[in-house]
Design a protein around this nucleic acid. Structure first.
Lengths: 244, 244
DNA sequence: CGTGGGATTGAGCACACTCAATCGACGTGG
DNA sequence: CCACGTCGATTGAGTGTGCTCAATCCCACG
């Protein structure tokens, strides 16, 4: 683990109770009574934009829950080929692996706050609190579901459909976190998006331009876009539209 | 759930104790004392070659542990595009999802025996037996790791590398189950392999021919092959070899 | 202003796809 | 026993989508 900026181990016993991520994923649906126990085994951590939470190959001693900000999860092959496994944000869980070392790196796309768990302590907590264990299972099941969607996208969709799928899932995720009206800020570069979709950055850029020309979206700036035709986007993402 | 051939609910209280899959994945590392409880909530099920264990869209009321045989897990898009999510066999766990309905179908490539769990009963067991819960977590973590490998393969490898990766992971899996010397029987068709790798069946066939010509493998019959150059296969799969 | 990183756009090329013919193994029936 | 039909695999020829290489643009910084 390198270059992380640790800033304190929490802000009193009510930290988890007041956490931003309290209503998302893992921590949603957990009773207040459980919060002290969560507090006890977790550490609040800040990672600055551009720094890494953990690196491919680091010993996998912790897992993390993202409180806010964006992380990019990626693996780099021998000859430099990079595959971005996903972008995670508020309420997402990172670092869950069977291996002894992380097989991906987690880099901060923005300033990030995470909640750090020691692996052993986390497992103990799962055993001690059935509610927590159930929620965790639901979450990992959801992660498996999401990865199947991603497999379908990479295996069977063309460039335009992939970019549409990416945007759609990003919109849906944003709608869960906060309800803003289709105005989106993308923390990642075109290259990041490309590497998550098995494309090149040029192809992603062309897809954005095309979606703009077809009136599906508006590009304020490269990282600030607005979805104009949500239904059209959904049709593209699901492969219901002609993309030739 | 359609067209499954149920044949009895087990063969006495020692069924799990003597199970073929006892030493694989989920059931490995579980103490004998746990077997009666496993017996109590599971049902032995047989599915004939070509039949489906469950269909995309079916209500997800059960999860399954494969005892023997091969299943193909696949999703079919609106316009018929198919993505094979994987091939599962002895000791693999199927049907774990967050959704209310299965988002993939499971079809038998051979006659298959599975062990069926009702979802609720299975979750109760996890809570009641920490050893079991820990093993289950390890397993789902392993599934996530595997899917990341698959994402990398689909996103960043060319046709030859994908086929090499497929063969390599298939060999490794065979070596876990039974130790035969590099002689492989493939229960799936070229089209199945293609749909799992995001390729066409012609491209897969050409890759097989090329691997044969380069002395990496020998093709007895289409479904019976022998790996001659394991190291060469590994180099191809990892992208260390020139594939032009 | 000038500089630099990222994004966009263009032109040509290559890898995998499409369409199509042939082959081979297997099972059935005359 | 051989002819025939079927299904899957193989191989070939031509095409097209997305990649490569390269120029330009845009905007945030110093």
């Amino acid at each position: 683990m390198v270059s992380i900026g640790v800033r304190g181990g929490g802000y009193g016993p009510s930290r988890c109770l007041q956490c931003e991520a309290r209503l998302r994923q893992l921590c949603a649906g957990l009773p207040d009574e459980l919060m002290p126990a969560l507090n006890a085994i977790s550490t609040s951590l800040k990672v600055s934009k551009g720094e890494t939470l953990f690196l491919e190959g680091d010993e996998a001693r912790h897992s993390f829950n993202v409180v806010n900000g964006y992380l990019r999860l990626a693996r780099v092959g021998i000859d430099g080929r990079r595959q971005v496994m996903g972008f995670v944000s508020t309420g997402d869980f990172v670092g869950h692996t069977r291996k002894d070392a992380y097989s991906i790196s987690a880099e901060a796309l923005t300033d990030v706050t995470v909640c750090r768990f020691e692996r052993g302590a986390f497992e103990d907590l799962l055993v001690r609190f059935p509610v927590f264990e159930r929620e965790f299972n639901r979450m990992t099941a959801g992660m498996l579901d999401d990865m199947q969607d991603q497999l379908f996208t990479l295996g069977r969709k063309n460039a335009l459909e992939r970019v549409a799928s990416f945007l759609l899932s990003y919109v849906e995720r944003q709608e869960e976190i906060q309800c803003n009206g289709h105005e989106l800020w993308l923390p990642m570069t075109r290259a990041d998006i490309a590497d998550s979709l098995g494309l090149t950055l040029e192809t992603v850029s062309r897809a954005f331009s095309r979606l703009k020309n077809e009136g599906i979206l508006e590009i304020e700036q490269a990282h600030t876009i607005r979805i104009l035709d949500r239904e059209g986007l959904e049709d593209l993402a699901s492969g219901e539209a002609e993309t030739v």
